[in-house]
């Protein structure tokens, strides 16, 4: 009775809210926030991963080194090429596929499942499958030779710099296009039917319906997808790692995450790798903030 008097209904709800949120909050604290703060801290030290000696404080030394490092800027450029090359087709095609699926009267679930299935595969397995396809004697060369009506031309999927970059983009696109299509399908499903019906009554064809009803009202979903795609692209690692350890030249696909891995695990330089992680984190943060800010110009309502 006293308990009921002391706490209002809102306060009780808030307590329960905290209780329910606490496990995930703890999870984030341990597995996300702690590594982030630890990486920021470590980025100011010179530390060999194997050494038992205490880390040596170098201040901004690791950052200064990175800003002068050709290899680091090469990996920044590789990441930018990959992100731009993947981001645009991934967002555009997943939206197009979603519209196509929603417009089908039948087999919607089948299309969604078929497109989504690569996303369920582990990235390593996906890269291994594509390694076989891109092998000089593999399916990719055979298909292109058939399409181009050539014979025995090696398109150097895993060796020429530009083809290698394209190969990593293809793998990533194949793996994630279904996932983002499903997100768009859910977004389209959230648009009330009466809006489409009203447009139909007003004489709009499906093209106009898409551009004037579906597309503008999908803005929150498009924003969500574009932020997710961009972050995913900046974090890309396993395809590049597997390709580079399977004979492909590292330089064209040495993205920041691969560079972080090599610096920490192969070179044992955890301080410098932490500095690279912090920079990548900041880039992600800024780009996400920018996207949110650009998208905030007008809110979407169904009224």
């Amino acid at each position: 009775m006293q308990y009921n008097k002391r706490f209002s209904m809102e306060q009780k709800k808030a307590v329960w809210g905290w209780i329910f949120v606490a496990p995930s909050l703890l999870f984030f604290l341990v597995f996300s926030f702690y590594p982030i703060f630890n990486a920021i801290y470590m980025s100011f030290f010179k530390k060999n991963l194997l050494s038992l000696k205490p880390p040596e404080f170098v201040g901004w030394g690791n950052y200064v080194y990175l800003f002068h490092s050709k290899t680091f800027w090469q990996s920044v450029s590789n990441t930018a090429v990959f992100t731009i090359g993947t981001f645009i087709p991934l967002v555009v095609f997943s939206l197009m596929l979603a519209v196509f699926i929603v417009s089908r009267p039948r087999f919607q679930k089948f299309f969604q499942m078929a497109l989504y299935s690569p996303a369920a595969l582990s990235s390593v397995v996906a890269a291994l499958i594509w390694l076989l396809i891109f092998d000089p004697r593999g399916l990719a060369n055979q298909t292109l030779n058939t399409l181009m009506r050539t014979s025995g031309v090696n398109y150097h999927w895993l060796s020429s710099s530009s083809m290698l970059r394209l190969s990593t983009i293809i793998v990533y696109f194949w793996k994630y296009v279904g996932y983002f299509t499903v997100v768009f399908v859910a977004g389209i499903g959230g648009i009330p039917d009466y809006l489409h019906e009203a447009a139909l009554i007003d004489g709009a064809d499906s093209w106009k319906d898409f551009w004037h009803i579906t597309f503008p009202l999908l803005k929150p979903t498009t924003l969500l997808v574009s932020v997710m795609v961009m972050i995913q692209c900046l974090k890309t690692f396993s395809t590049q790692y597997l390709f580079s350890t399977s004979g492909a030249p590292t330089r064209p696909i040495d993205v920041i995450t691969l560079s972080i891995y090599n610096t920490a695990i192969k070179d044992h330089n955890i301080g410098r790798a932490s500095a690279m992680s912090v920079l990548l984190f900041l880039v992600m943060l800024i780009l996400t903030w920018l996207q949110l800010r650009i998208a905030k110009t007008e809110d979407v309502t169904y009224n």
Partner: peptide, 20 residues
């Protein structure tokens, strides 16, 4: 101590010449 790092650098040099 940095042998593995050197091997990676040699790999990149050889493969850049062979393939790129």
């Amino acid at each position: 101590e940095n042998g593995y790092q050197f091997e990676r650098f040699i790999k990149e040099a050889v493969e850049s010449v062979m393939l790129s």
